[in-house]
Design a protein around this nucleic acid. Structure first.
Length: 553
RNA sequence: GGUCCCAUCGUCUAGUCAGGUCAGGACACCAGGUUUUCAUCCUGGGAACAGGGGUUCGAAUCCCCUUGGGAUCACCA
């Protein structure tokens, strides 16, 4: 068809955060361009004045960068972007859109319309009530030229509509879905310029795609129906149609659409079930709290949602790319996993890196059916990836992560290295390492022992309880001169021999529970070195005192 | 409701386009085993072609219908 250089684009609307569906689209666009020696460009679709924000735009840049899919052309950001076909913000391309609009107007392919949104809404409701499809009735086409001019001169609010030409069915060839067609009368004279003087999405997209040399449009399947409008417009301008690829949506495991609202949903459900009366710790102003609780259409600011979740002690579902970063996933793993949702390289290959992707990506292996997002599989992939990297790399990356999300651990100083290596093999995510090591940064006196099953088992159960062995352990540790993992292990082995017929668990586990407050910690030697001798002894003593006081030992 | 799209284990998928291996892999699950805890790790196991019609010697694969799921019907993108 065309010998033009391949060019794909990712064109987000900066109204929120980059979510996994958008990220997957971006990855596919990026991979297709790379696989074909083409260009991958980023364009910011901010024609919705009310909802777009600069913060959101910056967030998109960072998320894309974190995933390591830099763009060749587009807004300049940390080495990505630039290019001849800018500006890459639609809000800065008004003059261009007006120029193209005029062409349509001159050709009689577009016309002004003056109905108010309320009037149209009434029409729509009526159509719905009468169970017929709503189409704009072309009333404005009946207006004679003088009237139109008069309205224009009066400054009446106006929109511009595209005049759908006569013809047969509209046919679109989609590289993923195949041939799709619709009867022409299904498409009404849609608005291409809004009252605020900005083009609508449909208009801006096709003008930009054409002017920027986009050859392949890869986007979510929610756009499939829009495509009929787009090709009509493209044909009207005489633009070469790009190759369309509509990829299926990503859903939650329960089949609902994965949405940013899921966070509010999770919070609201929790708040209702537990009858939380007011915002804990005043993390949310009372007015917005009641508004939020009252309507499922009201969403909290992302920071408010995070604060509330933290205050309530619940985990919000990860939806946005940043959520996965915060949760301690590796960007290359998220990229890998996202690819698998709707694409597969075949040959039973599942785990691969970006190089493999760009060497093997092709549109004809994209799956048409929608996919559900399975966090368990992502987690398993992350574990595999974490175990594959060297301990040095794990340490470096964990430190980066902690600096951003767990500064108290980043402040571990010369102990960080041991903290990292002790957690390398056992962590599924970076957050895992931190969450199971809270006891490391807690004060010695802040440790409490919840009497859970494993705690009781380690300290209170059996003919000879773990607790009863603590005095001997404390004594041995007190006289232990060298405080390193080997010495501690040797000491514990000796204690196990003398106290428990060599059963290391009988002495190691009580120690672990005593110092950590629970049954989970890195290998006992590392745990105690990390804590230091002083803290270890203090915690052992406190534990002994605590349980001696509350029960007969 | 109109229009459009989709349909293989619980989940992601290979196999479908060029009909012919007891439908393969991964995650999850279950049962054993290793390990001083957790997490790992090892071994084994159950688990799918939505239903019905055709076409054919032969259908997961091609066609039709049904059912189910989804998207979309804005001066949002």
């Amino acid at each position: 068809m065309s010998t033009r250089k391949i060019c794909t684009r990712f064109a987000p609307s900066p109204t929120g955060h980059l979510h996994v569906g958008g990220a997957r689209t971006a990855i596919f666009c990026w991979a297709y361009a790379r696989a074909n020696g083409g260009n991958y460009l980023l364009r910011i679709e901010d024609t919705d004045q009310k909802r777009s924000s600069d913060d959101a735009t910056a967030g998109f840049f960072e998320d894309l960068k974190w995933l390591n899919i830099g763009w060749d052309e587009g807004p300049e950001f940390e080495g990505s972007g630039g290019g001849e076909n800018g500006p890459y913000y639609q809000s800065k391309r008004l003059a261009i859109y007006n120029e193209y609009l005029q062409k349509l107007l001159d050709a009689g392919l577009a016309y002004y319309a003056f109905e108010t949104p309320e009037e149209l809404d009434t029409e729509r409701k009526l159509a719905r009530k009468e169970k017929r499809a709503y189409r704009y009735n072309r009333a404005a086409l009946e207006l004679n030229q003088e009237t139109v001019q008069q309205y224009l001169d009066e400054g009446r609010p106006k929109v511009v509509r595209f005049k759908v030409p006569e013809g047969g069915p509209i046919v679109v060839h989609d590289a993923v879905v195949g041939e799709v067609q619709v009867e022409r009368n299904e498409v009404d004279d849609f608005v291409i310029f809004k009252t605020d003087g900005f083009p609508t999405f449909h208009f801006a997209v096709i003008v930009d795609d054409a002017l920027m040399g986009v050859t392949n449009v890869i986007r979510g399947q929610e756009h499939l129906n829009n495509t009929f409008k787009h090709v009509l417009l493209q044909d009207a301008f005489g633009f070469e149609r790009p190759t369309f690829s509509h990829i299926s949506l990503i859903f939650n495991p329960d089949g609902s659409k994965m949405s940013k609202r899921d966070k509010d949903k999770a919070l609201r459900t929790f708040v209702r079930e537990k009858n939380v009366e007011s915002p804990p710790n005043d993390c949310i102003p009372t007015e917005s709290w009641s508004a939020w609780l009252g309507s499922k259409d009201v969403q909290l600011e992302i920071s408010e949602a995070n604060d509330l979740a933290a205050a309530l002690g619940i985990q919000l579902p990860e939806i946005n790319v940043e959520d996965f970063q915060r949760a301690g996933y590796l960007p290359e793993v998220l990229l890998n996993y996202l690819c698998l949702l709707g694409w597969s390289p075949g040959n039973d290959i599942e785990q691969f890196d970006a190089d493999f992707l760009i060497n093997n990506f092709s549109l004809d292996r994209i799956v048409k059916s929608p996919a559900k997002f399975d966090r368990a599989k992502l987690l398993a992939f992350n574990l595999d990836a974490l175990q594959k990297i060297s301990t040095e790399e794990f340490e470096t990356r964990l430190l980066d992560w902690c600096t951003k999300y767990a500064p108290e651990f980043a402040a571990l100083g010369d102990k960080f290295s041991l903290f990292a290596s002790a957690n390398h093999e056992r962590s599924k995510t970076f957050r895992d390492a931190v969450e199971t090591s809270k006891f490391l940064i807690d004060d010695d006196d802040a440790i409490t022992w919840e009497e859970s099953k494993p705690v009781k088992k380690a300290l209170l159960k059996g003919e000879v309880t773990g607790l009863s062995r603590l005095p001997a352990i404390i004594e041995a540790f007190t006289t232990l001169e060298t405080w390193d993992a080997e010495s501690i292990d040797a000491c514990l082995h000796a204690l196990a021999d003398s106290l428990a017929d060599g059963a290391l668990g009988k002495v190691a586990q009580p120690v672990r529970v005593a110092v950590a407050g629970g049954p989970v910690s890195p290998p006992i030697g590392d745990t105690l070195v990390l804590l230091g001798k002083e803290a270890t002894l203090r915690r052992l003593s406190r534990c002994l005192e605590h349980f001696s006081a509350v029960c007969d030992v």
